[in-house]
């Protein structure tokens, strides 16, 4: 697996897309920091961008890479290699190279700006960790979709639809159901609803840092326990890990049964 990972990683590191992605984040970081001159504001804006864009890029990249390397995958399949190591290697190659672009692209301007001396370093690290988690989750989801759909166009369509659903539509339905059932105690429901969507989950993690003052304004013991203690942080990270593990397991499972 490590060998496949190595080759996939280097293959991607050389592709111009990685540079485009890297350059995009570099530019974003520079514009936010040096034109804005306000670290806190930059971190907040970045959060909005990361929550929405990282999943989109992870999804598109994951699907694209899978379909583009299909013949190469077949070449590998004929070699004495385990299927799971081929797909996990490729998946990790994509996820790691995307994460690298993200971390370096955003990290460099922030380091240049003097992040290490700033108190925003924890907010920023949390942001990057969340971004990496989202990359891993959405690459895995994209691989799942691609594995289940031979048709490239269909696969792309489903992938974009999934992103659209998790990034926007889900929250709309979520909000509607909250308003619809507002006469009932909702704190558990709302937390469960958050856990079931990795984008909401990462958003919550960042809310815990940026908006704790607002979150603590609400009654309900469950909310208090979740947001007021490290419980929320731990559960969120746990759920994010589960969100990585489950799709990865499905990659292994699905790839074992698939015909090429």
């Amino acid at each position: 697996m490590l060998k496949i990972l190595k080759y996939s990683f280097f293959d991607l590191m050389r592709s111009s897309w990685s540079y485009v992605y890297f350059a995009f984040y570099l530019l974003l970081g520079i514009v936010l920091l040096f034109l804005n001159n306000d670290l806190s504001k930059a971190v907040i804006t970045l959060m909005n961008v990361i929550i929405v864009l990282v999943p989109l890029i992870g999804t598109v990249f994951g699907v694209m890479y899978y379909y583009n390397s299909k013949e190469f995958t077949e070449l590998l399949l004929a070699q004495p290699l385990k299927r799971s190591s081929i797909f996990l290697g490729q998946y990790l190659g994509v996820a790691i190279s995307l994460s690298m672009s993200l971390i370096l692209g955003l990290g460099l301007p922030f380091i240049a700006y003097g992040l290490f001396k700033s108190s925003a370093i924890w907010d920023f690290s949390l942001l990057l960790i969340t971004g990496v988690f989202l990359t891993f989750i959405f690459c895995a989801l994209a691989f799942n979709i691609a594995l289940s759909n031979e048709n490239k166009i269909k696969g792309f369509g489903y992938a974009i639809l999934m992103w659209l659903f998790l990034a926007i539509i889900y929250d709309g339905l979520f909000l509607m159901s909250l308003i619809l059932f507002e006469d009932y105690p909702l704190d558990k429901l709302s937390l469960v609803g958050t856990m079931l969507n990795p984008i909401d989950l990462s958003r919550t993690l960042i809310l815990l840092k940026l908006d704790i003052s607002a979150l603590l304004g609400y009654t309900g013991a469950v909310f208090k326990q979740f947001f007021g203690t490290s419980f929320g942080l731990i559960i969120s990270f746990l759920m994010l890990s589960i969100w990585v593990i489950l799709p990865v397991l499905r990659i292994v499972f699905k790839s074992r049964k698939k015909d090429f």
Partner: peptide
């Protein structure tokens, strides 16, 4: 409870 949706794109 809809506070959990704060900063969501929607």
């Amino acid at each position: 409870e809809s506070i959990v949706l704060l900063r969501s794109l929607f």
